[in-house]
């Protein structure tokens, strides 16, 4: 069987096919942003959560940890750390506060960031809010 394969048709399929899937993707993205409020509990984003996210970014926490599975794989998952620490914000704050400035010999250690009490509270609030996002029941277990 012989066949014809023309550049014109290939071009049409590139432009047409891509445009079709771009439109489908934009439509779905739009729908997603419409239904997200049911899943992300944005009504609970308070001043502390906002400051917590800012601190999370300003200290590049994602450079070691994952958050909802995204980030570096050097340190534990934190989207469920609130649950792992027994739904106890004080435990999270105490952990961050107690990191030794010069590390732990031979082992990985989180740096000492010298956060204020207010900042610690904000970070803990941010992690608590994150743990409450409806993320398809991920991670599979408490260990993250």
């Amino acid at each position: 069987m012989s066949e014809t394969f023309t550049k014109t048709m290939a071009r049409n399929i590139f432009y047409g096919g891509s445009l079709f899937f771009i439109l489908v993707f934009l439509g779905l993205s739009f729908h997603t942003t419409r239904v997200l409020p049911e899943r992300d509990h944005r009504e609970n984003i308070n001043e502390d959560v906002i400051l917590g996210k800012k601190l999370w970014e300003d200290n590049n926490c994602i450079g070691c940890h994952t958050l909802m599975g995204e980030g570096a794989y050097f340190a534990p998952e934190l989207a469920n750390v609130y649950d792992r620490f027994g739904k106890n914000k004080e435990a999270i704050k105490a952990f961050i506060k107690s990191r030794p400035a010069n590390g732990i010999p031979g082992r990985r250690s989180m740096p000492q960031f010298n956060f204020s009490e207010e900042e610690l509270e904000a970070l803990a609030e941010f992690l608590k809010w994150t743990s409450e996002i409806d993320d398809g029941n991920w991670p599979p277990n408490i260990q993250g």
Partner: peptide, 18 residues
């Protein structure tokens, strides 16, 4: 592009998206 654009969905499994 046909596969990759909607393929973005494989990042939308566990971040709170539907």
């Amino acid at each position: 592009l046909i596969t990759g654009i909607l393929g973005t969905g494989h990042h939308y499994f566990w971040i709170g998206t539907p």
